[in-house]
Amino acid sequence: MQETRLDLARIRAARRMIDPVFLDTPLYRCEALEPGLGCAVSVKLETANPVRSFKARGTEVIASSLADTRSPAVVCASAGNLGQALAWSGRGRGIDVTVVASRFAPAVKLDRIRALEAKLELVDGDIEEARERAVAIARHDGIRLVEDSLDLETCEGAGTIGLELVATEPAFDAVLIALGGGAMATGIGEVLKACAPEVEVICVQPLGAPAMTRSWRERRVVTTDSTDTIADGVAGRRPIPAVLDDLLVVADDAVLVQEASIIAGMRLLLDRAGLVVEPSAALGIAAILEDRERFAGRHVATVVCGSNVDPAAYQRWVGAAPQQRP
């Protein structure tokens, strides 16, 4: 396999740095989903942890390496989930955490960042403006800037999900991974290509936030001026060149799905599996709904990557408030 920035030995070592509460998350075949999808479906539930997303796998690695440094402090830009994860990992290790986010991010995510005792700074723009502000803070204060997907710890921490997937028997035919900045896709993809190269690695992104998928297809960085999707966790506009290079090595395909399919996937996960998920976590199901023939007769795994969703927005999309259903 062509080389990436990632390293399988470091991914294996990352497991020792991550609090066990984030490891070995539930992975099971969900037969209740299958009549509506036409294929065997297993879900990897990355929501069954204290921050309700996969992001802490990476922030645990970062925080572990910083805990013994003098006056440790970090800053990151976040759509919400990375900030929660970094706040959680930092709080337990005496690390001062600053999170920069859009004031338009879901309130439930912002409130949780505050509850985890991180300093929260809001900007008027989107995640790209938040990144610019985080860079400025890091330079001014002389502290560590955590850049999701660019920092290898975020990718290799997420790669531990891949280790858990390849330990499953029988193996899957394909794994569907939500694609935003690329940390989860490159991390899991690195493991699958090294340990189970016969498994198809398929990245899924909203049609309304297509920058990384377009970049993968054209094999060059393609930026967009705006995004228009409910899947805020994957709504980036400016792919990172080094991350794209990694993705080109490990991803077999990258597909775009419509908003209606994302909502249908969220509803299916609620009604058939009892899972309340944020839009990004339903991208894999959306991809199956849009191309049933491709997956017919195959065993597909999808990573349910987050469940930090605003109750009012969820009710508008799905037609049921989270607290009303199991």
Rank of each mutant, 00 (worst) to 15 (best):
D19T: 11
R144F: 03
Y28D: 15
G90Y: 04
S215D: 10
P326K: 15
L120P: 03
V43L: 15
M184L: 14
L8Y: 10
G80I: 04
P311N: 14
G159D: 09
I127K: 07
L275H: 11
S149E: 05
M266T: 02
G233P: 00
Q84S: 10
A158T: 12
E164I: 03
P106S: 13
D68K: 12
A296M: 04
E153S: 15
E31D: 14
I62Q: 06
A167W: 14
P72N: 09
D232E: 14
V135Q: 04
E278S: 07
L179K: 08
S71E: 07
A48H: 05
L33D: 01
E200D: 04
A77R: 03
V166L: 08
S53I: 06
R16D: 15
A73C: 07
R70K: 14
A286T: 02
C39D: 10
K119I: 10
D148L: 06
L152N: 11
V309T: 08
F104N: 13
T227Y: 11
A301G: 04
V250F: 00
R272E: 11
D68F: 08
L270P: 02
Q258P: 00
G297A: 05
V175Y: 06
G306A: 15
L247M: 06
S149P: 01
R15N: 06
P170E: 09
R112T: 15
T4L: 11
L152Y: 10
K193A: 03
L165I: 13
